[in-house]
Every structure is written in C-alpha cells, then in structure tokens.
C-alpha cells in the first residue's frame, strides 16, 4: 500500500534503494495549520454543549450585578465597563480548560510535537480556533450584555471592536497558562492564579476603552495600547505555549 500514493518511478527506485527514503511530500506549514484549526472547529461543533458554557457563564455573571448592586440603569451604566471585562476575563478563563486538556490526554499534542512541523505554529492555529469558538462569540455577545446594563446602542460598534482585540490577547496569554497547567493533576484555581495577573493590562486598557466608548468619547488611545498588547501576545505567546507543552511532555 505504501507505494500506492507515490508517483510512478519512485516505487521501482525504492526497490533497489539501499535505504528507505522518506518520499512523502511534507505538508506545507500553512496547510498543517489549516488542518489543525479546522480539526478543532469540527470537533467543537460536534460537542456544541461545551461551546455554550463560556457564553452562558458570561451572561450569568453579567446578570449577577443588577441583582447584587441595583436595578437602576444609571448606576449599572457606571459600572458596565468593569462588569463586562471582569465577566469576559472569567469566561475566557473558564474556556481555557478546553484548549489543550483533551489533546494532551489522547496524545494529539505529542503527535504535534513530533510532527516535524513547528509546534509554535500548530499551537498558534489551535489558539486561533479557540478564539473563534470562545473569544469572538463573547465579543459578539457583549453588546447585549452592555445594553442590559443601560448602555446606549450607539456604543455597540466600539464595544465589539474593543472586545475583539481584547479577547485575542486574553486567549493567547491564557494559552501559556493552560499549557503550563497541563503537567498537573488538578489545576482549577491555579490556572486562575497563573493567568489573571498576566492579563491585568488587558483588563485595564479594555475597561478604559469601553468606558470611553460608552461615554461617547474617542477610545483610540487605550484601544491602540490594547492592540499593542495583542500584537505582542501574537508574537510571543505561542512560543511560550509551545515551550510549556514540550515541558509537559517530558
């Protein structure tokens, strides 16, 4: 069988070859990443229940504040940026649990590390898939949560934009923590202790930008700082996550 998908000529060359030549064409890095990403998307849509958990959690946390503080929209509007960002941070933390755990368990990460492809690149693809499944839906849901807290509809585009940039940074920073926690049996609270302090700058700039957006002012300055954090996370976090995954496989 092994000869069947080789081009004509190579098979006969192999017969006389003294040693086995690895003649299969390696997958280009981009194809490998596309496969790693689409695999996670397909898997997630087969287990849709898991997808909804972070979103339901986000809505639930948002709902706690009117009950705990006051139903007055004027008071809720004042704390809305903080509520949205704390809820988003906790929801994304909760979702991190799904990022690597299954793949570590069944040996997929091991196969990725031994694939000859860059592990950094494959984990970047996985993290992007994770963001598409959790971060992006959170960003799209944030306006509804915001409006329930008395925020005007005119602030919606700004909130979505800020949330999109912020959740990218959160997913990537969280990937390092999730990968570090892989070697341990129980990691629930530790994952929070590892990731939350590192994501505080995202919270600070994200909440400030949202506050300005809700007030109808220009939020470009904090958004640019947030984008800078996201760019930094895109360049460094996958490398950190790959190192952490290799450590967990040792």
């Amino acid at each position: 069988m092994s000869i069947t998908d080789l081009p004509a000529g190579v098979g006969s060359a192999l017969d006389s070859a003294p040693s086995l030549v690895y003649a299969a064409r390696p997958a280009p890095a981009l194809d490998a990443a596309r496969l790693a990403l689409s695999r996670d998307l397909v898997l997630a849509f087969r287990k849709r229940g898991q997808l909804l958990q972070p979103l339901a959690f986000f809505a639930l946390v948002t709902m706690l504040f009117p009950l705990a503080v006051s139903p007055e929209l004027s008071r809720l509007r004042a704390i809305a940026p903080g509520v949205l960002w704390v809820a988003a941070m906790l929801a994304s933390l909760l979702a991190l649990e799904f990022l690597f755990r299954d793949d570590a368990h069944d040996g997929t990460l091991e196969q990725y590390a031994l694939s000859g492809q860059s592990l950094t690149w494959l984990l970047f693809a996985k993290t992007i898939a994770h963001w598409l499944l959790t971060g992006l839906p959170l960003a799209l849901m944030a306006p509804f949560a915001a409006m329930s807290l008395g925020v005007a509809a005119s602030a919606v585009p700004g909130i979505v934009l800020i949330m999109v940039v912020g959740t990218i940074a959160l997913s990537l920073i969280g990937a390092i923590g999730a990968a570090l926690a892989l070697g341990m049996k129980r990691s629930g609270t530790l994952l929070a202790l590892l990731t939350l302090p590192l994501s505080l700058p995202v919270l600070i700039y994200g909440a400030r930008a949202t506050e300005l957006a809700i007030a109808g002012n220009s939020y470009m300055a904090p958004l640019e700082l947030l984008a800078a954090l996201a760019v930094l996370a895109v360049t460094l976090a996958p490398l950190g996550a790959a190192t952490a995954v290799r450590i967990s496989l040792e």
Partner: peptide
C-alpha cells in the same frame, strides 16, 4: 491519538495530514 468525536477516516486525515 484519536478523537472520539471524529470518524476513523477523519482522524487519519487530520492526524497524518498535519505531517504530509
């Protein structure tokens, strides 16, 4: 290294496809 929620064929497609 197989995923329970993929078919045998899909598993091979993704697993080996990442490499070659």
């Amino acid at each position: 290294p197989l995923k329970a929620d993929l078919t045998a064929r899909e598993n091979l497609h993704y697993w080996i496809g990442v490499r070659r």
